[in-house]
């Protein structure tokens, strides 16, 4: 399970970085489709961490560790950022026709929204990953490392 999670997380990060420059990888068509599809994969990421979400949401009103609360707030911000990114992306889409959605608002507003939300969310992703670094290190099985074992023992 952790292996699947790990592969999913690495691919999410990689695609996210490719999306940050629409000109970088097979042009705007790729950008728009991948942007839409990645939304689904984030939902999968959510589903795989569902137990955590359920536990903390239940515990949020009661007492829960400060760290979990911080993670929770960050996760909600990430989700909002993701939503804004995809929504504004749809509003400015060029290769896929979304005009039937009639979203309103000026192109400039959505364009700036798209840029700012994606920049801010990428920074939040960095923080999110930093807060789960222990999990990442465990995946690399650093436990076999002698120094690490000493640290754990002390």
């Amino acid at each position: 399970m952790n292996k699947i999670k790990f592969i999913l997380n690495v691919s999410l990060a990689a695609v996210m970085l490719l999306l940050m420059d629409p000109r970088s990888f097979y042009g705007l068509g790729f950008h728009e489709w991948a942007g839409l599809i990645i939304g689904l994969f984030f939902l999968l990421h959510k589903a795989l961490n569902w137990t955590w979400i359920k536990k903390v949401t239940m515990g949020f009103i009661k007492r829960c560790p400060r760290r979990a609360r911080l993670n929770y707030v960050l996760d909600v911000l990430l989700l909002v950022g993701m939503f804004l990114m995809i929504f504004s992306g749809i509003a400015i889409a060029k290769t896929i026709d979304f005009s039937w959605l009639n979203l309103g608002g000026s192109h400039m507003f959505w364009r700036v929204m798209h840029t700012s939300s994606s920049y801010i969310t990428l920074a939040l992703f960095g923080i999110h990953l930093g807060l789960h670094w222990k999990w990442v290190v465990q995946r690399f099985n650093f436990k076999k490392d002698k120094k690490w074992q000493k640290k754990l023992a002390s």
Binding site: A13, L17, M20, L122, A123, F125, G126, I127, G130, W133
Partner: peptide, 14 residues
Amino acid sequence: WFLAVFCLFTVGTI
């Protein structure tokens, strides 16, 4: 460059 910024935030947080 985006990767660099992403890593900056990750390392900073760690």
